[in-house]
Write a protein that binds this DNA or RNA. Sequence first.
DNA 1: AGGGAAACCCGAACGC
DNA 2: TGCGTTCGGGTTTCCC
Length: 274
Amino acid sequence: MPELPEVETIARFLREGAGNGLAGLPGSRIESCQVLWPRTIASPAPDEFIRRIAGQRVEAVSRRGKFLVIPLSTDTLLIHLRMSGDLRVESGAEPIRKHDRMILNFADNRRLAFNDTRKFGRAWLTADPQEELGNLGPEPLDPGLTTQRFHAMLTTHGRQLKPLLMDQTFLAGLGNIYTDEALYLARLHPLRQAGQLTMKEAARLLDAIRSVLTEGIRRNGASIDWVYRGGDFQNHFKVYGRTGEACPECGTPIQRLVVGQRGTHICPKCQPIR
DNA sequence: AGGGAAACCCGAACGC
DNA sequence: TGCGTTCGGGTTTCCC
């Protein structure tokens, strides 16, 4: 269904057999919308969102970066799950659940529920999705992103490697966990200056990013804390959340540092700063 | 331009 | 046992 390759936990929502039924939405007509936590609606204002989305039909379900992209008859619905967001497609007869923030009721009596414990998730209804998506960097799994191009992107920035990789306008889709795992796989220190990576290191990094994302997708994403259902990638992290445990490669205790205000996990021996 | 801090949130985990 | 505090995930915004 999705044209683009899939990235991390979003992939779970788009895959056949993932069990949440998003793939079955195209063709359904939205009859009404309930907003239970107004701040979930990023734009337009909740009352206009509710008025405008009613009557529109779902044309497709896809993804760009960490956004779910749902083209409707006239507008496009964008959903970002942020930290704790989750989606359910179910019968309208099911009970509303704790932490449900926004509900779409379909004419066929199904419902799409946007559940989000921590209230960070957002939804947009827009005639021009490029307003939100236009600034995103390339897709890491896009074959068109060559080593040469990636290296060229890196060298135009004098920035710490990890914050750059997590910058969605640089590359779309990497979060804290996958970045730590990818840097470990590539044996690169998160504080390295992006601009000084060699072509060889850039190649290693791109390979590592793709391999980490692919494994995350294969495992249906990572369930951090108690937040997500499904995926089991969290049981296969090499460094993330393993402070003090032995590096799988060399046995050195995994170190935790803070980079760009984010908890960062490295093997100090495998990922030397220079 | 890049980096740091704060804000938005909740519930788990921790300290006493 | 129970309470208060800390933490952290993604992103935006503001400030230096």
